[in-house]
Design a protein around this nucleic acid. Structure first.
Length: 582
RNA sequence: GGUUCCGUAGCUCAGUUGGAUAGAGCAACAGCCUUCUAAGCUGUGGGUCGAGCGUUCGAAUCGCUCCGGAAUCACCA
């Protein structure tokens, strides 16, 4: 955008000088020139025909001539219909590239950004949906960091509630004192099994009641197991020591399991919140809100926010018995975090089923008088579907995170050894490689899709290493590194030695342009909160580089400057790729 | 029913604030290991951008109306 802005500015001056009329810079449209045409940037002159009172071709030619005369870096221009394609000199691009050599992003207004992601429940192991969440959250936080922001990554664990009591109750009844160690099982898996067991037994009871003539709804409420689970939740909230101890023990098993999965994925958090500690937050704020008249207290003593003027409904914030609901807690934590981290921006990575929830959250905060309510953004992502349809825990079609990651490793190993990529390596090296490749495949496969869209996860395609995949990018990166390793004359690659005397062919120039624009893309993606832009961008860069690689042989190269240029490009391509692979 | 999101090649997906002849990969077919690593490269075929109307010099992109799919509209979380 930096170059485009510069061109826009020069264009405005040109219009003023040629036609003595001033125009708004926003009217100027500058794009990168399409591949099929000659040029680096294209200015569209159609909107200015009324000012020039000439044909599109004449107008574009006039402007082109003026720009070329006044900007020395423009080497030539071409006019096609109303499109003015201008070409910058090679030295212009090479200098830009050199400026960005360390991929340090300039022009930063550093911000404190808080990003919440993952947010698991402690009654089930992590699954494919969590993987999408985790990868988006982690990747976005890396993008924001690369932009020079101060990023705090937080997790909010849902560790309380009736669903947690269900697995606890099942363990109490049928667990016979089993532990992850005794069962030789990950803690989250073990607890998840008891949750499933509860559901199974509960359904049995319900079916029995129905066959005894009860209505379905009544049966679901009257089944003994659910009554016991509710009683357990009541005891937990009352601070019953025995229940509390069980809860702590089982949750600690789960956390150990989660930690393993996070480690496997390479994901970390700066702070973890537990809902058991935050669920009471927000009450005071809401009561204050009633006092100021922002919120409504109803006859049954429940407290609501009237959001109808914003197109939403009435939202309950405190139950009639004074206990808090989900959103109460979120109001409290938002206010707390805002203070704690002095956050300029708070991003929540949460599935699109909660779009309504976050709209309501922001509006309630607004009503409560927090004018920073709009610094909250909800990055919602779509569901991950399987070729057979949606994942359903009841039907056992949920893709478990650990299983999936293991499968990626196994496939990476199979494919790599079939291709002979692992020949002559030590066990340790092999393990390292399949981890990088397997995870790279999974991460890229998920991140390349626009988060807001529902996506289809086809296991066989995700572990394909050809084409638009993570391993292809890694492969290219590895090859570039190999080129650089072999080029022991690296020290003679200096931009000063590369000048306009060297002609750039189309591919060389296209790669340089792409790398120069890389930082801007990163910036834009950070603004749009969308890692998939970078993923797709890097793929196109890598693809160009691959052509480049196949079209030339450095070792056979006739002149030393050309060889330097190619090494120079390789070096920058490598750093651009590396930057985006973290 | 209200609100939000999605619909682009057989399949999975890109497509920058409206721009030029709509792009990749997979799958199919035909080539390429004298090159820096073939996890690659080249070529061929494949499209009514869900449909229609409108806005304008110009629409996959913006607006409206339909059609199809998803999510949501709890004193659940």
């Amino acid at each position: 955008m930096i170059i485009e802005n510069y061109i826009c500015g020069e264009f405005c001056k040109t219009i003023t000088n040629l036609y003595s009329q001033s125009i708004d810079i926003k009217q100027v449209q500058v794009q990168k020139t399409k591949k099929e045409f000659n040029g680096d940037f294209t200015i569209n002159v159609f909107p200015f025909l009324k000012i020039s009172k000439k044909s599109p071709e004449q107008t574009a030619t006039e402007i082109g001539n003026y720009l070329k005369e006044n900007i020395s870096e423009i080497s030539s221009f071409e006019v096609i219909k109303g499109f003015l394609n201008i070409t910058f000199s090679n030295s212009f691009w090479l200098n830009k590239l050199n400026k960005h050599s360390d991929n340090v992003i300039e022009n930063n207004k550093s911000q404190n950004i808080l990003i919440e992601y993952s947010s698991p429940n402690t009654n089930k192991p992590l699954h494919l949906g969590h993987i999408r969440n985790n990868l988006i959250g982690h990747s976005l936080s890396e993008i924001l960091k690369a932009n020079g922001n101060n990023v705090t990554k937080v997790n909010l664990v849902n560790d309380r509630g009736i669903h947690i009591c269900k697995s606890m109750l099942a363990w109490q009844k049928w667990g016979n004192g089993i532990t992850p160690e005794k069962a030789n099982k990950k803690g989250d898996k073990l607890v998840g099994d008891f949750y499933v067991l509860f559901d199974k037994e509960y359904k049995k009871q319900v079916a029995e009641l129905i066959s005894n003539g009860k209505l379905k709804e009544e049966a679901e409420k009257k089944a003994e197991l659910i009554i016991e689970a509710r009683e357990m939740l009541r005891k937990w909230e009352a601070g019953d020591t025995e229940i509390y101890k069980l809860w702590e023990t089982m949750n600690s098993w789960v956390y150990k399991g989660f930690e393993q999965t996070y480690n496997l994925l390479g994901i970390t958090f700066d702070k973890t919140y537990y809902e058991s500690q935050t669920y009471g937050l927000g009450k005071d704020e809401i009561i204050k809100g009633v006092a100021t008249g922002a919120l409504i207290k109803k006859e049954d003593h429940s407290i609501c926010a009237d959001l109808t003027s914003d197109g939403l409904d009435e939202k309950v914030l405190l139950r009639s018995d004074g206990t808090s609901v989900y959103i109460t807690q979120d109001i409290g934590t938002a206010i707390m975090r805002k203070k704690e981290f002095n956050a300029n921006k708070m991003i929540y990575i949460v599935g699109n089923e909660q779009i309504y929830h976050f709209q309501a959250l922001k509006l309630v905060l607004k009503k409560l008088g927090y004018n920073w309510y709009d610094t909250i953004s909800h990055l919602s992502y779509g569901m991950v579907e399987l070729p057979e349809g949606k994942m359903k825990s009841r039907e056992g079609t949920v893709v478990d995170a650990d299983d999936l990651i293991q499968e990626m490793f196994d496939t990476a190993k199979t494919i790599s050894s079939e291709l002979g990529k692992l020949d002559g390596l030590t066990e340790k090296e092999i393990e390292q490689i399949i981890k990088i490749v397997g995870l790279g495949a999974l991460k890229y496969f998920i991140l390349k899709v626009d988060p807001k869209k529902n996506m289809l996860f086809n296991p066989t395609e995700s572990i394909d290493f050809n084409g638009n995949t993570g391993p292809f990018i890694q492969y290219t990166y590895a090859r570039i590194k190999s080129v650089l390793r072999k080029a022991n004359e690296l020290n003679i690659i200096t931009p000063e030695k590369i000048n306009d005397k060297i002609e750039l062919n189309e591919i060389e120039k296209s790669i340089i342009k792409q790398i120069v624009n890389y930082n801007n893309i990163v910036n834009d993606a950070a603004n749009e909160l969308n890692p998939s832009i970078i993923a797709n961008y890097i793929y196109s860069l890598v693809k160009d580089y691959n052509q480049f690689y196949h079209d030339y042989s450095i070792l056979k190269e006739e002149n030393i400057e050309k060889r330097n240029l190619r090494l120079f490009i390789s070096k920058h391509t490598a750093s651009a790729i590396k930057n985006s692979m973290n």
